[in-house]
Design a binder for these strands. Structure first.
Lengths: 240, 240
DNA sequence: CAGGACGGTGGCAAACAGCCAATAAAATCC
DNA sequence: GGATTTTATTGGCTGTTTGCCACCGTCCTG
């Protein structure tokens, strides 16, 4: 039950109505990319003195007139220029002291983008891709948020065809396998991998070959379905 | 990135600092129980005129000095008297118009309680257990929240030993199977079920028998591990 | 003491998952 | 252009898991 107008309980414990509006809410996006056979995360230099020289996730406060998804898409659009990306809510973090400037509850989303298909405005904000394996100390509780999102994506990557959002439109099975290995952190048997992928019926053979590779070129494939913004919304609504 | 003190972006779009504190945050608990071979949900009569005669989930606004889990436990304690329950965050709902009285973002939790081991204060608040199959129109977006939590519990019930929170301490394998069937909405083969449970190593044979049953009594078991409040906290922290 | 309800148990077949190696095609190097 | 390197492509064997099925025993009730 939500109650705004019925504050009997609250009043009896000396909490005034306006106190309930002393909590701010933000979204933080764990933006995954994939390049040079490594999983990357997009981070920005923290703008808080407490965390000077630390990196943090991309996020912002939620505005009174936008819903959570809209806020996430806004952040992604502002930072990456993309607005047709895969985005999924993961978890909400609300510890009392997670933000040094006050009470901020944050809703974490993960996002998957094709790192080579976007051109960041890297000019005046310190925005950079970091290898997952290099990330150590993040500002706030962003390390926890990142770990939680990574765990979620690992769970989902074999269940739903989300992974293709990290790849260019055309890709070889070798590239796909290397990406899976980066995400899961294990090596996969090539033949078993190809069997499993073909069973899942997620990719379409394009009848084209790689070019500009220093070895025998492989066949190119594309994703059969691409889970993106619109599809994600439909999916949520269908839960009703 | 969270920003409270750096509101350049916001100001340039005519959003003042105080606007960010016009969003309230609540938690809503989907409290599952199990009785008479049916899955039940604990609901309360909505106290909003807009939703008169509709039932709603148990929830309340989050206080400025409590974190999300604390708020959920407080609600459970207030309503059910229990404070050692299994509780898990599921999803956060933040549509603009989900609450008729203003902007309220709510974090949904599901909870599993032993329905026969608690004595509700059913006196002056209209608080009742409802059969899952009877629930039709809930207040707010609570039907969506319920469906989302139900989906989550269905995903988790074969993965983690959470289900025992719905049962009394001692139970027979038949009771356990019937509970699984209620949650999953399917019938299970008895022999396969028993094989699978014994493989999972979640239960301990108590060397006791059912009594007061109008048929041949079965063996009684108890849960080997009980995921409850303290364990849940440890689990979250270990993600760090 | 007969009937009803449930308890307890295992084997067979199909699908799936993990493991392994040999040949072919293209690029590079000399 | 021949040798070398790198990767592509493909299938069968094996152990494991999953799904499906039926009978006899025991306790209770009437």
């Amino acid at each position: 039950m939500d109650k705004l107008l019925n504050l009997k309980t609250a009043e009896s414990e000396k909490v005034s109505h306006s106190d309930y509006f002393r909590i701010a809410i933000s979204v933080d996006c764990v933006i995954f990319g994939y390049d040079k056979k490594e999983l990357k995360i997009l981070l920005i230099k923290s703008d808080l003195a407490e965390f000077s020289d630390l990196w943090s996730l991309l996020g912002d406060l939620v505005r009174p007139n936008e819903d959570l998804e809209t806020a996430s898409y806004r952040i992604l659009k502002e930072r990456t220029g993309l607005d047709d990306v895969y985005l999924e809510q993961v978890y909400t973090f609300g510890s009392l002291n997670r933000h040094p400037s006050g009470r901020v509850i944050t809703v974490a989303y993960y996002s998957l983008v094709d790192i080579n298909h976007l051109h960041l405005k890297l000019t005046h904000n310190e925005l950079h891709w970091h290898r997952l394996t290099d990330i150590k100390n993040l500002a706030f509780d962003h390390q926890l948020i990142l770990n939680t999102c990574l765990q979620r994506i690992r769970e989902q990557v074999m269940e739903k065809p989300v992974i293709f959002n990290l790849l260019p439109e055309k890709f070889s099975l070798r590239e796909l396998q290397e990406l899976y290995q980066s995400i899961l952190g294990v090596n996969l048997d090539r033949r078993n991998f190809r069997k499993k992928i073909s069973l899942k019926d997620w990719v379409v053979d394009l009848d084209e070959m790689e070019s500009d590779v220093p070895h025998r070129p492989g066949k190119l494939y594309k994703a059969k379905v691409q889970l993106r913004k619109k599809q994600a919304k439909k999916r949520l609504q269908s839960q009703l």
